[in-house]
Design a binder for these strands. Structure first.
Lengths: 364, 364
DNA sequence: CGACTTTAGCAACGCTGTTGCGTTAGGGGG
DNA sequence: CCCCCTAACGCAACAGCGTTGCTAAAGTCG
């Protein structure tokens, strides 16, 4: 865990990360644009940029000649200076992607897993795919680590899987430690939906402060991005959106309650009425908006993307008609910008974020 | 707004606030206990303590004689060194409290307001009560400011009331600026539920990381405390928990949707079935837990506290039976520790928090 | 009385962003 | 052509943060 009190190294890392965040958002930038955006003096920005250029993550990119005055030095992020690998583990497959420092997905592959696969099966498969990436791409020495996004419940801080639903070999598995041993790389374990929303946030930049990624893929869940950071909750169990009740007397859900979004939604899908399923999801999304006052809703998941237009229209309709009308209450509904790669890509970006993202201070 | 980049003054303020937070949590403390808890070196703690003693917010409080070795200097918070006033504005009354730096409520009063009161009516009433507090308590020069908690929608950052429901004179009112003019003190405006959850958090300390304050009082709402900070959402509109749907085909709600918690709950109350109303609230609370993975649920609000036991039992029952059983999934359900003062007290504590709480850095 | 333990504090230090000011690279006007 | 203005750059000195090194103080214990 990070330290609690703030010292000079925190100060330095924080300001460096701030400049990196701007570098990701803007294609190119200058000393003064960073200075204006951050409040740092131009002199301080020079020092930060010198360190980042030294590290190789930022590089000079020519000059801009103003109408009058000395030309300004232009800088840019060096996307290929760092890479991360992300894995999306679902019940039958593992999808892996290679992502660069700019958040671009450079490579992606899916591999089937045996029914009732074990942690060993998974790690063997992942190791094979990583060897393949390494053969196809020049990334040696620049690979930051591996992120794994999977269904919960799990413990993000400890890196352990608590109880993956309907998977026999997955109870109290320290997958993070196992993977670091087998792969020889730093590993970051998180819930699939949280990884997914991280991908959107990393790509969209600072304007993306309060958002949810709604995922429909053998279950309904939501990854939450609140106040500019992932929200995981006290036990890494936030986002069990599919198990919120919308119909007090509805059908019994696998979780034991009645009328969960997932139960009502799945019943509609099984009845062949995807439109109705999407409507129910829309009601749930508006519930989320009322509770959390989000500005962005991102739709994702294989089962949803198969009927992308139906779901998107239904959710937009629900937001338009069920949220109290007010000009100041703006909500944007979009489809995941990375399609089915979003979870794996987000897992990879969490690794980059741990090293190049804006650091926080551990609570007391 | 605060600055974005971190500099030495941020570093200093942050570590000072860290020590203040410990001082609030512990009755007395020593240099080394702070050092252990924060990771600061004892020498650094000495410097911080010297500054805080100079400010008057912390004072030496004797020595502790260990079995062997030099006696350790003991310190304590000086509660009466700073005060803040909080106001809870509801549709017919304003309740005001005086709070000290330790978060203790020293004085409280309720004043009726005219039907359809105007901003001027409110501020006149508040000014009168503040004069009364000043006459009864020696607080001159130590009054930090005034916090106002009221129903929304409002804009917390701008200090304006957007549209208080069912109140004629309250559309786009810059109440914060008005109040600062009339009262001559810094003013902090926020939603009632957010103020309420701040009160609980300020009193409970660092262990209170993810929580909701459920309030039933002419409406149903929830104040959210996520990741150790208040969650207000993109438009200060988070917490409209009462307007989440739990019964797809339920009764029409004033907000336009069907089967909102508030509509179903109020219908049960009107039918004289408070037990059923509490059950519905319990379903909503479990929905919140599934979505946000909270560790604490605090129950508050005049209408709820009138039947405190019924509500508390129903919510605890819902948490016990409807949340998937797991030993690691711990949730604590409590009644507000400040009773009906919680909103006003929280509003006051937000003022103290702005000055003595742990500072954050503004986002990019 | 001396050895040891625990706490305290002075002083020098390394590092951060800041400030002051001179330098550089380009116009444009006389 | 020269001088002045503008805008960006960067060296050097600076203030202030927590850290480190070391000494002193105030107790207990043998």
């Amino acid at each position: 865990m990070h330290r609690i009190a703030a010292d000079l190294t925190f100060l330095r890392d924080y300001n460096e990360a701030l400049v990196m965040a701007l570098a990701r958002t803007w294609r190119t930038f200058e000393r003064n644009t960073v200075s204006d955006a951050t409040g740092l003096t131009p002199q301080a920005v020079s020092k930060v940029l010198a360190r980042l250029v030294e590290e190789g993550v930022v590089a000079p990119a020519g000059v801009r000649r103003p109408a009058i005055g000395k030309p300004a030095g232009v800088y840019e992020l060096v996307p290929h200076s760092r890479y991360a690998i992300g894995a999306h583990v679902s019940r039958r497959t593992v999808r892996m992607v290679l992502v660069d420092l700019a958040g671009t997905v450079l490579w992606s592959a899916v591999m089937a897993l045996p029914a009732d696969f074990t942690p060993g099966d998974l790690l063997d498969g992942m190791a094979g795919l990583i060897d393949k990436v390494r053969a196809e791409h020049e990334i040696d020495g620049r690979l930051t680590g591996v992120g794994i996004g999977m269904i919960g419940p799990l413990d993000h801080a400890a890196g352990t899987v608590r109880d993956a639903h309907r998977m026999r070999h997955w109870h109290d598995i320290p997958l993070g430690a196992f993977a670091e041993d087998v792969l020889g790389l730093p590993v970051h374990l998180d819930k699939d939906v949280t990884a997914g929303v991280t991908a959107e946030a990393w790509r969209r930049g600072a304007a993306f402060r309060d958002a949810a990624l709604i995922m429909v893929e053998s279950g309904v869940g939501a990854g939450l991005w609140l106040g500019g950071a992932a929200h995981r909750g006290s036990h890494t169990n936030a986002g069990e959106f599919g198990h919120t009740v919308v119909a007090l007397d509805g059908p019994r859900c696998a979780c034991g309650r009645r009328g969960c979004i997932e139960a009502v939604h799945d019943a509609a899908v099984e009845a062949g009425d995807v439109g109705r399923a999407a409507e129910v999801l829309g009601v749930g999304v508006v519930n989320l908006l009322q509770t959390l006052d989000l500005e962005h809703v991102v739709l994702a998941g294989a089962d949803l993307l198969r009927h992308a237009k139906v779901y998107r229209d239904a959710v937009e309709e629900a937001v338009r008609t069920q949220v109290p009308r007010a000009d100041w209450l703006t909500v944007e509904v979009t489809l995941s910008s990375l399609g089915e790669d979003v979870i794996a890509a987000g897992a990879a970006m969490q690794v980059l974020d741990a090293r190049y993202g804006i650091p926080g201070l551990a609570p007391l």
